[in-house]
Amino acid sequence: MNFFRLLGDLSHLASIFILLHKIQTTRSCRGISFKTQVLYVVVFVTRYLDLLTFQFHSIYNTVMKLFFIGSSIYILYLMRVRFRPTNDPSIDTFRIEYLLGPCAVLSLIFNYGYTWLEIPWSFSIFLESVAILPQLFMLQRTGEAETITTHYIAALGAYRALYIPNWIFRYFTEDNGVDAIAVVAGIVQTALYVDFGWIYFTKVLQGQKFELPA
């Protein structure tokens, strides 16, 4: 564990609390892509299958994994059951099969072993790297977003960005080589946030509304 990874994980945690706060205070999931949230459930469940093996890393690791799985499923419940009327599927139109299929193929080509843990792990890494796309696509379509929603996406972007210095730090301080799958997918994932991040910094953090240029 190092400073960047801890800060990244805390940022990831914060993003989930921001999302829960947004849904509960506005009593609405307007502006949130249900498809992206479904993808995160798939990501967490396929990545954390090692929970079933009881190959224990640390209490921190186990608690965080259980929290990510539990909270992501709870968010689906909020969107589909509790606040269902506020969810508008007509603007959440990204075709996620175009993400799931290629990620499945990639995980069969690039993995750390043909086992029931490694292939889903690899799949989840590739899928996480593109899971935000339905959300960004929705933002693109509506052209604007509630400020709290942009804080949610920004916290997710910060989490991904912080994992990059974490890997650089680990490269120089540990002797494990490079987790090429995680690093390449992680860089792709971080790059997807750049456009959003630019508008977030130049508009939202200056006190303006998040609006895309026409």
């Binding site: 690791n61 750390y112 494990n176 080589g177």
Partner: peptide, 10 residues
């Protein structure tokens, strides 16, 4: 690909 992996990251 060689097994990296502690998979100790979240």
């Amino acid at each position: 690909v060689q097994a990296f992996a502690a998979h100790d990251e979240l």
